[in-house]
């Protein structure tokens, strides 16, 4: 698999005209996970572009959440590993200092207030820096922080969830359905925040059922089907490749092709040499494709 030299070589996506800081290189290698008879991940290898927003897309039970949880360390993969900046992440979880994770359904201890949660995590992290509390104000949950988490509505819980994930200025953001349950105003606020962190160089992984939202956020698309990586390229390349004008239509096209073609979705190699298709040999920087597409 990729050596560390290779990984650091990919540190900056050359596709961005304005140089912006790039966050950690995050990579999963041969990740496999079964839950009983269900295969959630089948030897998935993905190198996420540092400093870019990558959307994980796939039908229900495609393995998106399992992939994200494996990266965070909540799910123990049967096989394979997670690399951050070229090194396998440590079992002690020290790498999570740089990771902000929004779980799909925030299940925090119900009798603790948001403030108690925040204080506890500050304490456990030994955090004495300046926390990023902008989301507490921007999502208007300052008052709710003093109420027990269990008494909050679903949307408000999600806001506290977001505030906690962004609090420690993480350079890696793992966002599992971050806008689920949010009203449109809050959803826009959160998306603005995600873009802001991206501009500051964070590497962002995001899933959502709202493909419209993803289209406005994501530069990279990872398409998973039955635990396998089926497609990984820039959004622009995906649209070009499928001949569709929206992400939704392009994904539908991929799913239809997946059904027809059996096991692999192969782009036309001659015209798209830089699209990686679950295939290590063609894993060039998709940022390049992005620029070509725009130009």
């Amino acid at each position: 698999m990729s050596s560390s030299a290779e990984v650091s070589g990919r540190a900056g996506p050359p596709g961005h005209s304005v140089a912006r800081p790039a966050g950690p290189a995050l990579e999963v290698v041969d990740l496999s996970k079964r839950f009983g008879r269900v295969r959630a991940l089948a030897s998935a290898s993905i190198a996420f572009t540092p400093g870019a927003v990558t959307a994980l897309i796939g039908p229900n039970s495609a393995g998106k959440t399992t992939l994200l949880k494996s990266i965070v360390g909540l799910v123990r993969p049967d096989d394979g590993c997670v690399l951050m900046n070229g090194t396998v992440v440590d079992a002690g979880g020290a790498y999570r200092r740089d990771v902000g994770y929004m779980p799909q359904l925030p299940a925090f201890p119900p009798h603790m207030t948001g403030q108690e949660l925040v204080d506890m995590i500050d304490d456990l992290r030994g955090f004495d820096g300046e926390p990023d509390e902008s989301l507490i104000d921007d999502l208007e949950v300052r008052d709710e922080m003093s109420k027990p988490f269990g008494s909050l509505s679903g949307g408000t819980r999600q806001k506290v969830n977001a505030a906690l994930a962004f609090r420690y200025r993480p350079t890696v953001l793992i966002l599992d359905e971050p806008t689920a349950g949010l009203d449109p105003v809050a959803s826009l606020t959160l998306k603005r925040k995600i873009r802001e962190r991206r501009e500051e160089g964070a590497t962002v992984l995001i899933t959502s059922h709202d493909l419209g939202s993803l289209e406005s956020l994501a530069e990279e698309i990872v398409f998973l089907l039955e635990g396998r990586l089926r497609f990984h390229a820039s959004l622009v390349r995906l649209l070009e490749e499928t001949g569709q004008r929206s992400l939704e239509a392009a994904i539908a096209e991929l799913m239809l092709r997946g059904r027809g073609a059996g096991d692999e979705i192969r782009p036309k190699r001659a015209t798209t040499p830089d699209v990686s298709v679950g295939d290590d040999t063609a894993r060039d920087d998709p940022g390049l494709a992005n620029e070509e597409g725009v130009a």
Binding site: Y95, R96, P109, L117
Partner: peptide, 16 residues
């Protein structure tokens, strides 16, 4: 304490 454990393990704290 499932929720509590889940929350802790999303942060830089090891399982041990």
């Amino acid at each position: 304490r499932g929720d509590f454990v889940n929350l802790l393990l999303s942060h830089p704290v090891g399982r041990r």
